[in-house]
Structure formats: structure tokens, C-alpha cells
Amino acid sequence: MDGGEPMTEDSWTVAGRVFRSRLIVGTGKYKDYAINAAAAEAAGAEIVTVALRRVNLSDSSQPLLSDFVRPDRFTYLPNTAGCFTGEEAVRTLRLAREAGGWDLVKLEVLSRTAHLLPDMEETLRALKMLVAEGFQVMVYCTDDPVFAVKLEEAGAAAIMPAAAPIGSGLGVQNKLNLHFIIEQAKVPVLVDAGVGVASHAAEAMEMGCDAVLMNTAIAEARDPIRMARAMKHAVIAGREAFLAGRMPKRLYAEPSSPMSGLI
């Protein structure tokens, strides 16, 4: 064998926890929890995002996420979807901590808009409240490098800029900003939201992201399990390409075959 670290030695760390998979998958929008669990397995995911909602009191026999996507198999990353203020986020994540004992959480405080991009002023306020309560907070954010620094200074465990609006499937819209965020961050940077196809995930990883978080791209694929597998390979390919170091860009051709010894 020539060259290259074995992939198994490549890991990343968030809030002191070490993970080998760089693909975090959501658990929303699937046809059912069984397909959801199979897709999470096919993705090779170690972390899945989950939401917290009222139990169905009229039918306690309804299937539960935790019976399919098992918390002893996957690290649950509770989110704050549906929260628009810091107080709502803190209330939700206190309950999540009680439900599962997790202090590693995903903060998302969205704007009430069609694009659902994060309300960064409220996100930063919520982050400070959660850090004060001992949570380890992975923060969904806009791709603003200046705000990314503020989040990190406030104690974010990871910076998670949107590639594009949630569920849009458009891929990385602002490569320059993402580059700045990756370059300056001392905590992991994950692209969260906006990935649609495998090449989007590979591109984010090639740029040096630590991991990618996605939901709709897999859940809404015609074959979610196959797409989960594609995303797994894309993330690995992008990561390996990043570690390998790309060739220089040139404006003009550079022949691959020798120009000497021509007949």
C-alpha cells in the first residue's frame, strides 16, 4: 500500500465526544420509522437529529421513534425546531435532557419567513442561555463569518451554517463565506441544511467541513436507503479529497503525457 492514512483513523470531536462518521442525518419526513432507521444505518450515521413533541395521549400504541432509531445505536441530537425565542429553546432542551439525559444539542432559532433562515440575534441570545445551563450546543446559523465568530466566542460546540434554506436541496450557495467560516473556526464546522445531492455533500467536505448534516435529501429521495448510501460515500470521498490536498488550479492546459520522445 502506498500513502494515505487509513480512513478508520480519521475522526472528529465535538464537545469531547469522538465520532468517525461525518454524516449526521435527520429523522424527519420519512414515510415511516422503519425506513428512517434503515436509511440511518445505510448512511453509516452515528448521530441523528430528533425533535421533541407532545406524546399522543389518545393513542399510546403509536410507534415511537426510539423503538426504530434506537438511542443505544445512535447518538440523539435533540433540536429546537419550532422555537422562535431563547426561552422556548431552553424549555425544549431542558425537557430533552430529562427525556434522554443528553446535553449535546442542536440549537435552531428560525425566522418566521418563507426561507426559514436562522434569526441570528435570537440564536446568539439562546446560545448564551443554554451554555449557562451547561448544554453543549451545536448551532445552526447563517453563513455569516462575523456571526460565526460571535457564536464561537459565546461557547458554541460546533458552528453549523446553512448551505441553502432547509429542504431546498440547492447545495452550497456561498462558497466564499463557508471558506472563511471553516478557516477561522476552532470548533467543528458542519454544513447543515440545503444539501440536495451527493455532489453537494462532497463539495462541502472538500472545502474542509468537519461533517455534513442532512435530512430532506435522503428522506425525499425516491429510494431513501440508496440515497443514504450515496451520501455516505460522498462524504467519505469529499473528506479524503480534502485530506489528500487538491492539485493547483491553472488557467491553461498541462499535458499529462510527456512532450519529449515524440515520434
Binding site: 435527520g26 429523522t27 424527519g28 419526513k29 420519512y30 420509522y33 428512517n36 437529529t49 430528533v50 425533535a51 421533541l52 413533541r53 407532545r54 406524546v55 395521549l57 415511537l64 421513534l65 426510539s66 432509531v69 440523539y76 435533540p78 433540536n79 425546531a81 425537557l95 430533552a96 427525556a99 434522554g100 432547509i166 441544511a193 435530512n215 430532506t216
Partner: peptide, 10 residues
């Protein structure tokens, strides 16, 4: 009283 559980989410 609020009683909650984990459900699918992104």
C-alpha cells in the same frame, strides 16, 4: 402538565 417524547426531526 406537558408530556413529551422524541419524534423524527431534522
Amino acid at each position: 402538565i406537558e408530556i413529551v417524547t422524541f419524534v423524527g426531526g431534522g
